[in-house]
Design a protein around this nucleic acid. Structure first.
Length: 202
DNA sequence: TGAAACACGGCCCTTGCTAA
DNA sequence: TTAGCAAGGGCCGTGTTTCA
């Protein structure tokens, strides 16, 4: 179970979203993904996508934010979640995108939509020293409202015969923009050399 | 000197559209 | 009807640069 003292009630949240619902979501994600950790070792980027998906699923269950009831939109369109009753074309203030990442600050997307973003920062703990029975641990959850200008286009040089990634948008100055936006942060995790590590570890 | 930012390399998936 | 491609969705790893 998550600890109450790891939640920060001073962080501005989207309208209607509560600490209680985020806390339930964190517990839900950790529980559900414990059975899927093998995927992490197969394809870590796919696993991160699952973290985002389960985050959206959890908030759909435990909060006033819901996934689109139109299957095509729910599967692939922005946003992952919208405030209940906000209609089919919600304002950015009522959009909530769920993303999972093991990175400390960085955030990438294929689009530069304005809206609320919740980022589930996780780590894989194969020895389960942090939490017995939990190989996947959420150590921070950032939540922030991002404007279109907050995103920076990162072009692709992919081409025939040379491969390459597709284009992305990256959040500008993520450490500064997300500073103070952690609605949840485990006190027993610290950042060392750009990675999240147990505070009592090496 | 170390953390953060940046740039660019890589991967996976599904759906919608269009031409054959 | 089907197959190919573009577009859109989800990311990570690592080397280099910048800055406090």
């Amino acid at each position: 179970m998550t600890r109450q003292e790891d939640f920060n009630g001073t962080v501005t949240l989207p309208a209607g979203l509560t600490i209680a619902s985020i806390r339930k979501a964190v517990d839900y994600i950790e529980h559900e993904l414990s059975d899927l950790v093998d995927i992490y070792y197969e394809q870590s980027n796919v696993f991160s996508a699952l973290v985002g998906i389960y985050g959206a699923k959890a908030l759909d269950t435990f909060s006033v934010y819901e996934k689109s009831r139109h299957l095509d939109e729910a599967q692939q369109r922005f946003p992952d979640l919208k405030r209940r009753g906000s209609g089919r074309s919600p304002a950015p203030e009522e959009c909530l995108e769920s993303k999972g990442s093991k990175r400390v600050w960085a955030l990438q997307s294929h689009y530069d939509h304005a809206g609320w973003y919740i980022v589930w920062r996780y780590l894989v703990d194969p020895t389960m020293t942090l939490e017995p029975g939990k190989p996947v641990v959420m150590w921070r959850a950032d939540i922030a409202f991002l404007q279109r200008d907050d995103w920076k286009y990162e072009a692709s040089r992919a081409g025939e015969g040379k491969g390459g990634r597709t284009h992305t948008f990256g959040l500008r100055e993520p450490a500064r923009k997300l500073d103070g936006k952690a609605v949840y942060r485990r006190q027993d995790i610290r950042i060392k050399r750009g990675k999240a590590v147990p505070a009592n570890g090496a």
